[in-house]
Design a protein around this nucleic acid. Structure first.
Length: 378
RNA sequence: GGAGGAGUACCCAAGUGGCCAAAGGGGGCAGACUGUAAAUCUGUUACGUUUCGUUUCGAUGGUUCGAAUCCAUCCUCCUCCA
């Protein structure tokens, strides 16, 4: 269930509820735990402390390891990873893009050569729905093809037409699975995904078509996969008017703090991105004055917290100099602390966006931070 | 004391007459990262007035048009014999 509680221009403040956890306050950032764990030794228990409202995991990866039937036998993903909040599972559609050298697409679905051992795995709309049902997530994503940008118009057109047909198949399989008595989470929702590359006409056509299907939410996929940032914004601007007002909108895989602020301004409610976790593992930490590379020599004797205005558990206790030392010495703790900080930062960024929306001050917030957060801090 | 071996850039290590300011690895410095094949990948690492010049391969001297590479002496380290 979703309702918009406040608006400022196109930007929306909302509340979302599903079968698990408390009401989700939107706009929200979903913390990515692809294989049922946040990379960098961060557990679901840690996520609680970091202000995470929704966790995201991946169909393809969990199907390969440990296997969705294993997860199901152990009570579903919530119990398996001991996270009682909402879980969204991505469908495997992104792997059609990221593993493009290891797969073949047909009308029926996609055959992957496992990135682990090369064995063949067929995944179509039905398989993706079955796996996500076994995982018991709260939101299942439609199985789509995420197309790289830029791509030829004719290819994108054929692809998004197929993605629409796949959505119809996802929908009927999803409804069937939810009606079975022994399904783990019979309240699982299905979100459709808009595609169409960088072509506004295809995007709008596709959005109008998928909006006819009764999905509980709609995502914009296939962005931030090669195109210029402004092109991404232009596509969101083009598609947004055709996204149902009363349903959540999810911009998949985005993005930088600035991308998030700019996309909230364009009417997006849900986000996810590997960036805070991956960048953290690589030593790039977010602060309210811009990002820093904690491995830089200039932090060798810096006794300050990563961010003086951050309330996260890391900033309460440790100095930049200590974090730098942990990175240079390749201690595992370096990644754990860095990931915890960055996730906390993203979650508090969303909280500040929500507060600004509540107070009718989002545009001012956007003016102050959109640019600043994409720069460098000292 | 005798015999043999070795000294190359921050470290390890290739190179044994010109294509060598010198492979490769490590370390250092910096950059990238957007629904995670990522604790990954990329660049850079003698000096300068930088499409070129200067100095450099333990030291000094020599051979040669040309030397990290050949010769002499010296210094240092290692192994074996006494």
């Amino acid at each position: 269930m979703f309702k918009v509680t406040k608006r400022e221009g196109i930007a929306r403040r909302g509340e979302f509820t599903c079968a698990h956890g408390d009401t989700v306050q939107t706009p929200v950032f979903m913390n990515v735990g692809t294989q049922g764990a946040i990379k960098g030794a961060v557990s679901a228990h840690d996520l609680k402390k970091l202000g995470c409202q929704i966790e995201l995991s991946n169909t393809y990866h969990l199907h390969l390891r440990p296997g969705d039937s294993v997860v199901r036998q152990l009570g579903g993903l919530h119990r398996f990873m001991d996270w009682d909040g909402p879980i969204l599972t991505d469908s495997g559609g992104f792997q059609v893009f990221s593993l493009s050298g290891l797969r073949k697409i047909t009308e029926e679905g996609v055959t992957f050569a496992s990135h682990i051992d090369g064995h063949r795995i067929f995944m179509g709309p039905e398989e993706s729905m079955q796996i996500q049902s076994n995982l018991g997530s709260d939101i299942a994503m439609a199985f789509d093809e995420c197309v790289e940008n830029p791509a030829p118009y004719e290819y994108v057109k054929a692809s998004c037409e197929r993605t629409l047909r796949w959505l119809e198949r996802c929908k009927s399989e999803h409804d069937r699975l939810n009606s079975l008595p022994d399904t783990i989470n019979r309240q699982q929702m299905l979100f459709g995904i808009n595609q169409g590359g960088t072509y506004a006409d295809l995007r709008v056509w596709h959005m109008k078509e998928i909006a006819k299907l009764d999905c509980e939410g709609f995502a914009i996929g296939g962005l931030a996969v090669g195109e210029e940032t402004q092109v991404m914004y232009d596509i969101i601007d083009a598609v947004e008017p055709f996204m149902p007002q009363e349903k959540p909108r999810y911009l998949m895989g985005v993005g930088t703090p600035s991308n998030i602020i700019e996309s909230v301004a364009r009417g997006v409610d849900f986000f996810d991105c590997v960036m805070p976790a991956r960048n953290a593992r690589h030593g790039k930490l977010f602060t309210w004055a811009g990002a820093i590379n904690i491995k830089n020599e200039k932090f060798k004797l810096d006794g300050r917290a990563i961010d003086g205005h951050c309330d996260c558990p890391v900033c309460q206790s440790f100095s930049r100099a200590y974090l730098r030392h942990l990175f240079v010495a390749e201690e595992m703790l370096a990644m754990r602390l860095a990931v915890m900080h960055n996730l906390y930062f993203y979650n508090s960024l969303m909280e500040r966006i929500r507060t600004a929306l509540d107070e009718g001050a989002f545009e001012a917030f956007r003016q102050e931070y959109s640019k600043k957060l994409s720069g460098r801090a000292n």
